[in-house]
Design a protein around this nucleic acid. Sequence first.
DNA 1: ACTATGATTAACTAATTAGTTAATTAACTT
DNA 2: AAGTTAATTAACTAATTAGTTAATCATAGT
Lengths: 115, 115
Amino acid sequence: MDNLSRTFAALADPTRRAILARLSAGEANVSDLAQPFLKDMSLPAVTKHLKVLENAGLVSKGRNAQWRPCRINGEPLREAVDWMEQHRIAWEEQLDRLGTYLKAKTKGARHDHKK
Amino acid sequence: MDNLSRTFAALADPTRRAILARLSAGEANVSDLAQPFLKDMSLPAVTKHLKVLENAGLVSKGRNAQWRPCRINGEPLREAVDWMEQHRIAWEEQLDRLGTYLKAKTKGARHDHKK
DNA sequence: ACTATGATTAACTAATTAGTTAATTAACTT
DNA sequence: AAGTTAATTAACTAATTAGTTAATCATAGT
């Protein structure tokens, strides 16, 4: 499977997206990351989700004694955003053709990015 | 399954991404969309891929006689980009901490968007 | 009416995914 | 050395996915 597919597949799960969201606030151990989900699933289930994120290159694990500090890796995410941005103009043109672009536009600068 | 997961799952396949890429150039019938893939897979396989894209709301089909003109729908894609953008600053900070941000930055304005 | 074209549906299979519990590994604590 | 904590691995199951071929549906053209 290609990198981009692995990245999108990794993002296609709310648990994994929540893990990434948590990691964008900074490094965390596996059990820290697991904590919010332990009502819904077991620790090995979280380990597996992390493995999916690791295989997609979105997360990398370090080691500190018996802990495994995880951190986010932005590069594959950038590639995914790049793919979407590459087509975004065309999508918006499509919306324009359908006459719904104006509505989107008036939502504000939500899609503008920092300089 | 939630919308965002459905969108990312739909994007996690190179055939489906190619179909979307083709559709960002404009409307196309099922057989037009299928044509580049018919060496690799059957027409029903493409129909199924389109069904996945439809269920994610990424594509909508019209009807014109026996043809089914397909067009892209930007809204779910916007939501996906929004999710990523929401976390992007944090990812970049993470990169910064790792000292690799500068390298990314010198790649140019690739990640800046239109006003 | 008959035939051709465009597309979908049905029925099936193989592979992958997401979860489980139980066992195991690795490192720290006393 | 024994026990505790953090995390992974193993073995298994149920559900989903991506593909197949064959049959069907819908419309057009003759």
